[in-house]
């Protein structure tokens, strides 16, 4: 029987394969295998150490790259968390402010409008702050503006439909009718001093005032109710020849840190 070329090749291949396997198992191939191992062992070891080094370098590079990536991710997370923290802190402050206002409303029976300070007007008058509430919200020129802890910080200076401008009490243009909480109920006018401080003027020489006395609004102004705290007397300037004495008032508020304010619109009729 004649075999074709392809079949011959297959047969020969099968025979060779089987023969090799057989020779291996009867250990005839052992010397050849030993020789191969002897020759290639060194080369394989050398090749392995080189490739291992390359692999390690790549792993180091990869791990560095991963660290950089991880670092970037952590930075992003940190930024997110800081952002969240900032939001929470802001909300917490706002919450506290609102709680205080609620107590204040209950206590005094005023109608309030809470406003955010959204900017500062720098048109020569430094202490003019922009509020996010305006005519639409019932804001009128002259209404007093308070902080959360019931301290007067200014008055509405100008009103537009959706926003208003508040003049800080320490501005040179600011004037508020005030009285000292002493036995004489000493009256005077609190004026701002170039945005730097407050001064109570027009205090009759005969009146006795003391340092640390609390100065409050007198209620003589139409829009400003009586009893709003302005500050405490820090020092008294009394000159014998002058008709009036005056006192420096220290406000209990840091005017640079105002974010939320409270505008007193009117006395709540229900209370």
């Amino acid at each position: 029987m004649m075999l074709n070329r392809s079949t011959k090749l297959v047969v020969i291949s099968v025979v060779i394969v089987l023969l090799l396997i057989f020779l291996h198992y009867i250990k005839v191939l052992r010397p050849v295998e030993n020789l191969v191992v002897g020759v290639t062992k060194g080369l394989l070891g050398y090749g392995y150490s080189i490739s291992n080094e390359v692999g390690q370098k790549y792993l180091t590079y990869e791990s560095k790259a991963n660290l950089v990536k991880e670092n970037e991710q952590l930075k992003e997370q940190l930024a997110d968390l800081l952002h969240q923290k900032s939001d929470f802190t802001e909300q917490k402050d706002e919450n506290e402010f609102l709680r205080q206002q609620l107590n204040f409303i209950k206590e005094h029976g005023f109608e309030f409008e809470i406003a955010n300070i959204i900017g500062q007007q720098n048109l020569g008058i430094k202490s003019l702050l922009i509020l996010n509430k305006g005519e639409k919200h019932g804001i009128i020129k002259g209404q007093p503006v308070l902080t959360s802890n019931e301290i007067m910080v200014g008055k509405i200076f100008e009103v537009e439909r959706n926003r208003s401008f508040m003049l800080l009490i320490n501005d040179d243009l600011s004037k508020v009718a005030a009285k000292v909480q002493n036995d004489d109920k000493t009256m005077g006018i609190v004026e701002g001093e170039f945005g730097l401080g407050l001064k109570m003027k027009l205090i009759p020489q005969t009146e006795i005032i003391n340092e640390q006395d609390i100065v409050i609004t007198s209620g003589l102004e139409e829009m400003v109710p009586a009893g709003l705290i302005i500050g405490a007397i820090a020092s008294i300037e009394k000159e014998p020849e002058a008709l009036f004495q005056q006192a420096s008032i220290k406000s209990l508020v840091n005017f640079n840190k105002l974010t939320l304010v409270n505008i007193i619109k009117q006395k709540n009729e229900e209370n």
Binding site: T40, L43, L44, G47, Y48, I50, S51, V54, L59
Partner: peptide, 17 residues
């Protein structure tokens, strides 16, 4: 043959990626 064997057995197995 030797080179291929070294590459296959010793080097490629350690390659990254």
């Amino acid at each position: 043959i030797l080179l291929l064997l070294v590459f296959q057995v010793a080097i490629i197995s350690n390659l990254p990626f």
